[in-house]
């Protein structure tokens, strides 16, 4: 019962270094662990309304994201349920119709997931490149582990893959570091 219909979304812009740490974290999660039935992993990028359907149809939502709390770079934070800020203030850009707005809209429609948790990391640098900063790279393993723990709290024990895979964004970031592009 507890393992029914859990959605994990990685949010962020992979072209802006630590901004994309959430996407990189769920990529690692999928490549290190076997994702069981009833759990869906999505690379949400910086989209908002595109996630309406999957979020509406899940019971429990876990989001991995870059979060600016003012804490030290690379700090991991967890914000859950009522503590997730509702961001409906002066809007000048479409991008502000983000995840928190979507959750508020779903609350109004009485279709919000029963449980929502954001596992976040405080980003250090947002330069236009793929590779994470040392601070974020150092925290990535711990962030993945937090996602595993969060799932365990919901009653889902992940099994490690016998052999780790390498995802698209990790491979591209490694190529960039070797100077093979740009």
């Amino acid at each position: 019962m507890a393992s029914k219909n859990i959605l994990i979304i990685g949010m962020g812009n992979v072209l802006m270094q630590d901004e994309g740490v959430g996407v990189r974290a769920v990529e690692e999660l999928e490549n290190r662990y076997i994702i069981p039935q009833g759990v869906t992993v999505i690379d949400g990028g910086t989209t908002g309304m595109g996630l309406y359907d999957p979020i509406r149809n899940c019971d429990q939502l876990i989001v991995a994201d870059a979060i600016n709390t003012g804490d030290a770079y690379g700090t991991l934070v967890r914000i859950a349920n009522d503590d997730i800020p509702a961001f409906f203030q002066t809007k000048l850009s479409n991008h502000q119709l983000g995840l928190s707005d979507l959750l508020a809209l779903l609350t109004l429609k009485a279709e919000v997931p029963r449980h929502v948790a954001i596992i976040g990391m405080v980003p250090h640098s947002l330069e236009n490149k793929l590779g994470l900063t040392n601070e974020a790279a150092a925290g990535l393993d711990a962030m993945v582990k937090r996602l595993v723990d969060e799932l365990a709290d919901l009653g889902v024990q992940l099994e490690e893959r016998s052999e780790q895979l390498i995802g698209h964004w990790r491979r591209e970031a490694e190529l960039e570091a070797q100077g093979l592009c740009a």
Binding site: M16, H95, G120
Partner: peptide, 22 residues
């Protein structure tokens, strides 16, 4: 806001970060 919003502005083409320091 009415006039700027009428253009459907979309500036940063990039960033969306959650920020608890409002």
């Amino acid at each position: 806001l009415r006039t700027v919003h009428s253009f459907d502005p979309c500036i940063a083409c990039a960033i969306h970060m959650v920020d608890t320091e409002q």
